[in-house]
Design a protein around this nucleic acid. Structure first.
Lengths: 164, 164
DNA sequence: CCCCCCATGTAAGCTGTTACATGATTGA
DNA sequence: TCAATCATGTAACAGCTTACATGGGGGG
């Protein structure tokens, strides 16, 4: 149940609306944990019931918008979860599964699978590098919000991530 | 819906029981696509209804056992699926997600996370190497069954896998 | 005035997890 | 005779995907 913790993590940088969260899942946290909009709103409701977040209703004209902020219990839970060491999820890799049966199809088909695979990971790598660069230059909105902590620390986190 | 294709793949090496399949998912295909027993039996039923596999009832004493064999439609479907190029599943990495929030916990906690992570992957790598060695020496039961094709081909497949 | 963005939700359906349940056979 | 292995299933639930649904605000 990690959408929950991903949300807590984002909210730990500051309060925001469900919509904002959706955006972050689209282009920043989404890099490591993706979640669709249809999962975020219900989860926020559940989290509020569980006392992990608090919400306040605001208005923009007639439009209702609900701001969510992390609660004390939420912060505690987030920290607990980060420290917790758990088992890894079972392996499930569609390409490797396909690769097991490459002997069943023409060589050319296998080759284009692998080409597509390489292309995919090259794109991915580019995205990561771009993202890492952005973080180093402090261009990330969430990171900016976190500047209550000193910046170099985040750099190390990111370095660790990239090392992985 | 890839349990289905994983099962088809295993069955393409020869007919076997549900129980046999469970074993293979436990220690060979499971390396790339894990599936619990409670998923395999129902899936076999569905696949039989869909005409992808055929089953025959056999007895061992009073004990019923059902042998499953891949049907023509199943082979076709497997081949189709192997050739198909699809999008990658969304990213969802629990450790990387944790790593994003390492700044919230004591340094020591982050360090032991990373240590555990490294240990995990070292174990994993060992397992892969062992497995690869077994395949090269043709010690794998499924591979033995496939020796209707010439063996060197499988080597290449495995090489591709390892390269990945 | 129209389109894109902001903003929030619901519903059906599939996949996978955890746990429960049962019973026969084989070998030590 | 006892434990491990062979053998097959069911049920409840959690998590995620895809699609549907609605409506106001802001800028060109």
């Amino acid at each position: 149940m990690s959408v929950r913790h991903a949300i807590l993590g984002v909210l730990s940088a500051g309060p925001m609306t469900g919509y904002d969260l959706v955006q972050f899942f689209h282009d920043s946290v989404g890099f490591v944990w993706s979640a669709p909009q249809s999962q975020i709103y219900p989860e926020l409701h559940k989290m509020e019931k569980a006392g992990l977040v608090r919400s306040t209703l605001a208005l923009r004209g007639k439009l209702e918008k609900r701001g969510y902020a992390i609660a004390a219990d939420g912060e505690a839970e987030l920290r607990r979860w980060v420290e917790e060491i758990v088992d890894y999820p079972p392996e499930r890799d569609p390409l490797r599964l396909r690769a097991l049966y490459f002997d069943l199809v023409p060589f050319a088909a296998a080759r284009s699978q692998l080409r597509a695979h390489i292309a995919y990971y090259e794109r991915r790598l580019e995205q990561w590098q771009e993202r890492a660069a952005a973080l180093r230059e402090l261009r990330a909105p969430l990171l900016e919000k976190r500047l209550a902590l000193r910046a170099p620390e985040e750099h190390e986190t990111m370095a660790a991530l990239k090392a992985h």
